[in-house]
Amino acid sequence: MGKKGIWLKLPLEKSDLVPIAVKEGFQYHHAEPGYVMLTYWIPEGPCMLPSNASHLVGVGGFVINDNNEVLVVQEKHCSPSNLGLWKMPTGFIHEAEEIYAGVVREVKEETGIETEFIEVIAFRHAHNVAFEKSDLFFICMLRPLSSKIIIDDHEIEAAKWMPLVEFVKQPLIQEDSMFKKIVDIFVARLGMRYCGLSTHQTLSKFDGTTSSLYYNVMDNENINCVGN
């Protein structure tokens, strides 16, 4: 039939066929709650089928109110090195969820605070994290639309509005080069000395779909970001 690669998707009710497929030369590719996917590359030489997803995508929300207070949380389950740290709300985005929508949802779920996405101010790329996957973590600036905190009892130990100066002075922030750099960038953004990436809906002729393109928009005469 001229095929070079075979994708074999076995639903849960046919999982008894997995050992048979493996015996015939199929290899695991990925699994979801309802199925397992296996592949078989027919020709000699390296397999040209695309690999399983290589990255997890996380988000963190910097939310600051008109009193120069930052929305911070303490997690119920964290590493010993982070005990006592007041941090921004964080989490993973869902499948087919936009970055800007995911960070708004995570902040709402953890703290009950409604927010509006403004910009991605930075992102981190790390490797061999959860499940040996690479990790993209987007730090976003959000505008609060409410003020009453209602914490998620399953994940969050405590949440509060903390003065920005107190947040910055935390030893765990000052001693960690990445955290400190993120805070420095955030403070620079507040002072209009830095521009992040806002989202813009664009249509591409390559695939005929609308997607989110993140870039900054700057005033031609100075560095101040416009539209925020």
Results as ranks from 00 to 15, higher is better:
V165W: 14
V165L: 15
E166W: 04
F167N: 07
F167S: 04
F167V: 09
V168F: 07
V168A: 09
K169A: 15
K169N: 15
Q170A: 02
P171K: 15
P171E: 12
P171D: 13
L172P: 03
I173S: 04
I173Q: 05
E175V: 15
D176F: 03
D176K: 05
D176T: 05
S177I: 14
S177E: 13
S177D: 10
M178K: 11
M178T: 13
M178C: 08
M178W: 12
F179W: 08
K180F: 04
K180G: 03
K181Q: 11
K181N: 12
I182P: 07
V183R: 13
V183I: 14
I185T: 07
I185F: 00
I185P: 03
I185R: 06
V187Y: 13
V187S: 11
V187T: 14
R189P: 00
L190I: 01
G191H: 06
G191M: 05
G191E: 08
R193S: 08
Y194M: 06
C195P: 03
C195I: 08
C195D: 04
G196D: 00
L197G: 03
S198K: 00
T199R: 08
T199M: 04
H200E: 01
H200W: 00
Q201C: 14
Q201S: 13
T202R: 15
T202H: 13
L203E: 07
L203I: 08
S204A: 06
K205F: 12
D207E: 15
D207T: 15
G208C: 02
T209N: 10
T209I: 07
T210M: 08
S211V: 07
S212C: 07
L213V: 02
Y215E: 04
N216A: 04
N216D: 08
V217E: 00
M218N: 11
D219N: 11
D219L: 06
D219R: 10
D219M: 04
N220Y: 12
N220L: 14
N220E: 12
N220A: 12
N222Y: 02
N222V: 02
I223N: 15
I223W: 12
